[in-house]
Amino acid sequence: MDSSGVAVQMQGPPPNAQGLPPGLQYLAGLNEINIHQHLDILEVATGFERNNKYKICNNQDQQFMYAKEDTDCCTRQLCGPGRPFTMNITDNNFQPLISLYRPLRCQASFMWCCYLQEMDIMSPPGLSVGGIKQLWTPWKPKFQVHDAQQTPLFEIEGECCFCCPCTDIMFTVTDIAKGQQIGEIIKHWGGCREIFGGVNDFKVTFPMEMDTMQKALLLGATFLIDFNYFEPKKN
């Protein structure tokens, strides 16, 4: 972001990114992305849940994608952060790139072992490239990322104290085939923005040479983690 707090847009895609859906070439040349949830003043003032919006930026906070939730009003108010949602991710010209869909899931702890969270990721929208499934554990958050053929690719594991205030929360990303950590999803402590606005900021890291669609899967996983653990419960 610049000194005024406004995200600066990227001027052009990195080189050598042929054969990708339009706009995704930005993602191909990155090893880190930052996700900033939009502070909705009307929502803060009224307590009336509105569709979430996010700016997706590179490591210099230059915006190259935009994400917006598409959920009806009644669902947002009645179901809270456990609601089913579609998240549409576009480039800066609002051309569709990625679509995320999470079905309705109960967030009650006694149901976690049999009604776990999941998300389908499509790019371009309508064509599944994989998804994320929550794995049951008694204490640590844990997810498995798979491709369109249901082949497990990554495991994402959080910390035991994943709801501690005033600190960054880290989720490690492990390559299942290699058995080694290859990235992180970090939920940054947002200070007043988080306390009074209920908005969250994330950083996602991965190898530069990682397949672009696999990067898209980790991007999608970040939104599932956000809704599952860090969205304020207003009802």
Rank of each mutant, 00 (worst) to 15 (best):
M1T: 08
D2L: 04
D2Y: 02
S4R: 10
G5L: 01
M10A: 07
P13M: 13
P15Q: 15
N16Y: 11
A17L: 05
A17T: 10
Q18E: 15
L20S: 11
L20Y: 07
P22M: 05
P22I: 02
G23Y: 15
Y26W: 14
L27Q: 08
A28C: 13
G29K: 06
I35V: 06
I41H: 02
L42T: 06
E43Y: 11
T46Q: 09
T46D: 04
F48G: 13
E49P: 12
Y54C: 01
C57M: 14
C57G: 15
Q63P: 11
Q63W: 13
Q63L: 08
Q63S: 11
F64R: 11
Y66V: 12
A67V: 04
A67H: 06
D72E: 05
R76H: 04
P84D: 00
I89L: 04
T90C: 07
D91V: 02
N92G: 10
F94W: 12
F94H: 15
Q95K: 11
L97Q: 15
I98Y: 12
L100T: 02
R102I: 01
C106W: 14
F110C: 07
F110H: 05
M111F: 14
Y115N: 01
L116I: 04
D120P: 05
M122G: 04
S123D: 03
S123N: 09
P124S: 01
L127R: 12
L127T: 04
L127K: 11
V129N: 05
Q134V: 00
Q134T: 03
W136E: 00
T137L: 00
P141H: 02
F143S: 01
Q144N: 01
V145I: 06
H146I: 00
D147M: 09
Q149G: 15
L153Y: 06
G158E: 01
C160E: 00
C161R: 09
C163H: 13
C164T: 11
C164G: 15
P165E: 15
C166P: 03
T167Q: 08
D168H: 13
M170V: 09
G179K: 00
Q181G: 06
Q181D: 12
G190D: 13
G191E: 10
R193K: 09
E194A: 03
F196K: 05
G198T: 06
V199G: 06
V199D: 08
D201G: 10
D201V: 00
F202S: 02
K203R: 14
T205C: 00
D211P: 08
T212K: 09
M213L: 10
Q214G: 02
G220R: 03
G220Q: 10
G220S: 07
L224W: 00
I225V: 05
D226N: 13
F230S: 02
E231Y: 15
E231K: 01
P232Y: 12
K233G: 14
K233D: 13
K234W: 10
K234Q: 15
